[in-house]
């Protein structure tokens, strides 16, 4: 198990990480999700031993490794741009970790080569051992980088934006494959991503970060369905936000009461977040939201309807069943919010 306690890190005047506490369970596939500048890569590098915290402790299985260098932590690290050694063949790249061991622990040349071939087979690059990295495609390079990291038999695999530099098709394939490999090898893996879809699809648990703090840790289901903060609600999945006020357990959008219970929120300003698919059409009845339709297009089995709501200048997006006729542009549509999340707003946040 990996335990981070109170990790803080400063770069000059910039607070990259602020009192981070996090537990990573054995065998877990964990995503560090956040926008750029959220501190997710810094946190990953601190876990790896490529960067060191100003404050706090890193523990691997209760052992304090805070001051241990990367070479002594036995982690596999896959870099965003792979960082393959371009003057070495693919097999030499994969075998590098074994070949730099001290004479006593170093396997024979043939053994290293055999191990490299084994790993190349594992990452489905059999027979490419004699090529150079420049002769491989992006996806292949990524897998070589992975094989190289796995060669030293790490307990912990760390991946920095592992799919960032790949095109959509390769990315999807590689994701599925990585997920499979993780299970098969019994690793603990942590990966950094800014792509919420990637995090939700791959990870057992998602750590959502922003401005150097952890906003929420939870399963993809938790993070998506029950976001703890307006930031998480906004960053993970698509969200519509309405400024509302709460009075006596009732939600009001300007002077219109909306059918969303607000029993747990004290009176005052609040933000109402709902997903595009969490709505039904309800005509212009009380409790509904009047939407002026400005655009409709097909999105798989649903109509994506874009519309305006009087009082806010953002476009509201909702999904309607494509089994029915699409709403006409320019028409008013009553929207009932089935499932929503209310966030109490402090005065400053308004």
């Amino acid at each position: 198990m990996i335990r981070l306690e109170n990790i803080s890190k400063r770069f000059g005047g910039y607070q990259a990480l602020h009192d981070i506490d996090l537990d990573v369970r054995d065998g877990e596939f964990l995503a560090l999700l956040g926008p750029s500048g959220s501190g997710k890569t810094t946190l990953l590098r601190i876990i790896a031993g490529l960067a060191f915290p100003d404050k706090g402790t890193v523990r691997f299985n209760a052992e304090d490794v805070t001051n241990l260098k990367v070479a002594d932590r036995k982690v596999g690290f896959v870099f965003q741009h792979y960082a393959l050694f371009k003057h070495m063949t693919v097999a030499d790249n994969v075998g590098f970790g074994l070949s730099v061991r001290s004479r006593r622990e170093r396997p024979a040349k043939e053994a290293i080569r055999a191990r490299a071939e084994e790993l190349l087979e594992l990452v489905q690059l059999k027979g490419l051992g004699n090529r150079y990295p420049a002769q491989l495609s992006g996806g292949q390079r990524q897998r070589v980088a992975l094989a190289r990291a796995l060669a030293v038999e790490p307990q912990l695999l760390l991946l920095d934006e592992p799919f960032g530099a790949l095109d959509a098709q390769v990315r999807k394939e590689l994701r599925r494959w990585l997920r499979q490999l993780h299970g098969q090898m019994g690793l603990t893996s942590i990966f950094v991503t800014h792509d919420q879809e990637e995090a939700l699809e791959l990870a057992d648990r998602v750590v959502v970060m922003d401005h150097g703090v952890i906003e929420q840790v939870g399963t993809p289901e938790d993070v998506y369905m029950a976001p703890h903060s307006p930031f998480v609600s906004n960053f993970v999945g698509e969200t519509n936000s309405l400024p509302v006020s709460v009075r006596g357990g009732q939600t009001q959008f300007f002077d219109r009461v909306i059918d969303v219970p607000a029993n747990t929120i004290p009176d005052g300003a609040a933000r109402l977040d709902f997903r595009p698919h969490d709505v039904t059409v309800c005509d212009e009845r009380p409790g509904c939201l009047p939407l002026l339709v400005t655009g409709v297009y097909r999105r798989g089995g649903e109509w994506r309807v874009e519309g305006e709501v009087t009082g806010i200048d953002r476009i509201i997006e909702v999904d309607l069943d494509a089994g029915q006729a699409p709403p006409e542009i320019g028409k008013r549509l009553g929207i009932k919010v089935k499932h929503a999340k209310l966030f109490q707003l402090s005065e400053a946040r308004q």
């Binding site: 790896a48 031993g49 490529l50 260098k69 990367v70 070479a71 982690v75 596999g76 690290f77 870099f79 741009h81 960082a83 393959l84 050694f85 590098f96 970790g97 730099v100 061991r101 190289r148 990291a149 060669a151 030293v152």
Partner: peptide, 13 residues
């Protein structure tokens, strides 16, 4: 620094 960090992470001195 990526290449150097990669080498260090693989246990090289």
């Amino acid at each position: 620094r990526d290449d150097e960090e990669a080498a260090l992470s693989l246990g090289a001195s």
